[in-house]
């Protein structure tokens, strides 16, 4: 699957299918620190992402 990451913006490819929780673990990200977005809406932690999925992993922590 294609995964869009931020800060800095970049893309990586990850083999699927894989649950959101496992994807974040693989990326070494805390669930509370990001949102996973697919087709303009949120994907919950237990959702299974197919191999052809395109998702954005959006950080939510800001330093302002």
């Amino acid at each position: 699957m294609l995964v869009h990451l931020r800060n800095p913006s970049r893309q990586i490819t990850v083999d699927g299918p894989m649950s959101v929780v496992k994807l974040l673990k693989k990326l070494d990200l805390r669930r509370e620190s990001v949102l996973v977005i697919r087709d303009g809406t949120l994907v919950p932690g237990d959702a299974l992402l197919p191999d052809d999925a395109e998702v954005e992993v959006r950080p939510v922590i800001s330093g302002g």
């Binding site: 949102l35 809406t41 939510v60 922590i61 800001s62």
Partner: peptide
Amino acid sequence: SERETAAYCVL
């Protein structure tokens, strides 16, 4: 939380 305000904006 800021995860919730971000989720609010997405939704």
